[in-house]
Structure formats: C-alpha cells, structure tokens
Amino acid sequence: MLALLSGQAAARSTDTVDNVMIYIVVISVILLLGVTAAMVYFVFKYHRKKGHKPKDIHGSVILEAIWIGIPTLLVLSMFYYGYTGYKTIRAIPDDAFEINVKARMWEWEFNYENGKKTDTLFVPAKQNIKLNLESYDVNHSLYIPAFRIKEDVIAGRINYLVFNAEQTGTYDIACAEYCGLNHSMMYTAVVAMPQSEFDVWYNTKDVSAEPENIEDTSADSSAVTDSTLIGGGNQ
C-alpha cells in the first residue's frame, strides 16, 4: 500500500493488485469499525445498573437475512474483483518474451533463448515477459514484491509467471517458499532496461554466458545440495 502513494507503478500487475487491496481493505475497515463501535456503544449504554431489566430478544429473521445477504454480496464482489484482476495477471500474451528460470538452494539461474545464462534477471521494460519456472531441488517461489507477483518453483513441473515492467529500474527478487538454511539470502534482482539497451546486451557475446556452459543436469545437482544442507552453503 505504501507504493500506492508513490505514483508510478513498477508494473501493470502492481496497479491491479493494489486496487483489489484497496477495495477489500476499505470495506473491511468499515465493517470492523461498525462492529467495534456497536459493541463499545452497547457496553456503555446497557451497563448494568440497579433496577435495570435486560430484555430477552431471541433473534430476528429479518436481521439474520440482512447480515447474511449483504456480506454475501460484498464477498462475492471481492471474489469477482480479485478473480478478474488475477486473470489479467495470469494471461499469457502472444508476444511474450520467454525466459527459463531454474532455482536451486540458494540461487537463481536465468536461461535466455539465445543461450545466455545469468544470475540476475535482465528484461526489456514495457515488454511482456513470461518466466518458465523449474526447480533443481526443493520448492522455491519466485517473488517480485514491486510487481506484486509470485509463483512457486517446483522440481519436475514447469510453472509460469507473466509480467510487464512499466518502469525501468532494478527490483528485488526474493524466494518466498522456505527452502532451508539460506532461504532468506536467496535474493537477486530483475533489471528492467530500455528495449534498445537490452538488445545491445542481449546480442553481445559474454564469457559468462557461453551456451556450452550448461553443467547442470537436475539429478546430479540435488545430490550436491544434499551435502550442503546443514551448516554449509555459503554463497
């Protein structure tokens, strides 16, 4: 919510999620204040006094209908709003630029279609990006707080995440699914750059991004991480 006040959203999904958040929170705060105010008012108003006779009211079908009916409409609207927003966030555009993401305890690996491989995610801004997520070992979750999105990264299946960075800049990527010793240090970043800059970087041959440099096959890497599970794994 803090980012709401700062104006420009980092990604399209940022606005979508923040708007749903505001909608639910506003209704919730009204309900909370209403319930609390009624309770506190009654406690003062009907405070036990000598000679004061309480009145046994067993209930009211009309009131029950009201406070089942109105909340039903409210939560259905919350559901619907949350669902439609979600659909836009999850929709895979045809022109999406795909990057294959591999996670292992406790680092990220980004594989581009031309064979480039990095540990920081470089993307062109204002371009639809689709990340294909797969884990080498335990469950991880790729989380970009500034874009308000995450998806679990699991071995043996490919999950995906779609985003479009509106603003150039560098944003944190965190691991959100507990994955052992250095879970809290599994940070990297997504760097959204202007398309032209990205193209220059993407088309340069880089030593660290040799296409032949693929030393991992998933079966072996899990054995390696096993031994570093306890007390090891300085990265």
Partner: peptide, 23 residues
C-alpha cells in the same frame, strides 16, 4: 478476530494472494 477474519478476505482473493502469499 475480526481483523484476522477480514484480512483472511485479502488473502482469499486471488489477485492479492499472489502478492501476499508466504509473506
């Protein structure tokens, strides 16, 4: 409990949950 329940609506909603899940 009301605060707990109402914030449950926030994480029950799909859009907000994919941001707030596991946070």
């Amino acid at each position: 409990f009301s605060i707990g329940g109402l914030t449950g609506l926030v994480v029950g909603s799909l859009s907000t949950d994919i941001h707030l899940h596991d946070t």
